[in-house]
Simulated assay, not measured.
Amino acid sequence: MEINFRKYQGAGNDFILLDDRGGTLVDKLDRPTIARLCDRHFGIGADGLMLLRQADAEYDFEMVYFNADGGRSTMCGNGGRCIVRFAADLGIDREVYKFLAVDGPHEATVTPAGEVSLEMNDVTEIRELDGDLVLDTGSPHYLKFVDDLDDVDVVTNGRTIRQSPLFREAGINVNFVRETPEGLELATYERGVENETLACGTGVTAAVVGHLHRRGGTTDGPFRIKVRAKGGNLSVTGERYGTQYRHLRLIGPAELVFEGTFTI
């Protein structure tokens, strides 16, 4: 069976996108096949694979996301932005896109500058653990704030935290964050990829929330913070009310890289 695909990237986070509105692909793509397609030496190469599927009438589509290891995963922020761009390229034309993901409904828009702005879930709980922070932005994240990202072995240190007894079974994404006068810099080790990725949308969102939490004080109200990942620049907007972070939006590029076919 020959299948058409398109590959997209958002700040260096890259994904294989498949149109499954006909409902014929999900049962044909088992875990080993997805892992092989995402392999950078023997496949197309990607941080994950997504299916755009038909959804209930109130939604424009459903996003089904698989990690590079072939397993189903929680929400992917950059993936969500890329699948909106994919939907637009397929001719699904909306001022506001409404789609369903594993963590619930999302809305997104394409900005006048051509970026994709994606609504993320509210954050209402932040845990402190040995001086670091743990929170969920659709996927679980561990935040370690550092003085210099160049001094961090992201893979070794990230894997040590991810494979620690507390997180080994469910997994967690590990983010190393540097605070700068201009905003934040971020490096991420992603579960499911089990390696460093050039960007992570839910990780960027988590880093911004963690940064504001660390600042404390009377900083309630709207915010916009820039984040520089290794693969590009993103920003997060939202509103803070005490320990509640609402109306979060992840904003950044989402671009077609190439398209082709593969056979299974």
Rank of each mutant, 00 (worst) to 15 (best):
N4W: 03
F5P: 08
F5K: 06
A11E: 07
I16R: 06
D19S: 12
D19Q: 11
D20R: 07
G23I: 11
V26A: 14
D27W: 03
K28N: 02
A35M: 07
G43E: 10
G43I: 03
A46K: 08
L49W: 08
L49A: 08
L51R: 03
R53V: 05
Q54C: 12
F61W: 12
M63V: 08
M63L: 04
S73W: 03
T74I: 02
R81F: 06
L90W: 13
I92G: 03
F99M: 00
V102S: 14
E107G: 01
A108M: 00
T111I: 03
P112W: 00
S117F: 01
L118W: 01
V123Q: 00
E125T: 15
E128L: 10
E128F: 10
L133I: 12
L135G: 13
L143E: 04
L143W: 05
V146A: 05
V152N: 07
D153W: 00
T156L: 10
G158Y: 01
S164A: 10
S164R: 11
A170Q: 14
I172N: 00
I172F: 01
V177G: 05
T180C: 09
L184Y: 09
L184F: 10
A187E: 11
T188Y: 14
A199K: 03
A199P: 05
G203H: 08
T205S: 15
V209L: 03
H211F: 15
H213M: 09
I225A: 08
I225T: 13
K226H: 05
K230L: 14
E239T: 15
R240T: 08
Y241K: 12
G242F: 06
T243I: 11
R246S: 15
H247L: 13
L250Y: 10
A254Q: 01
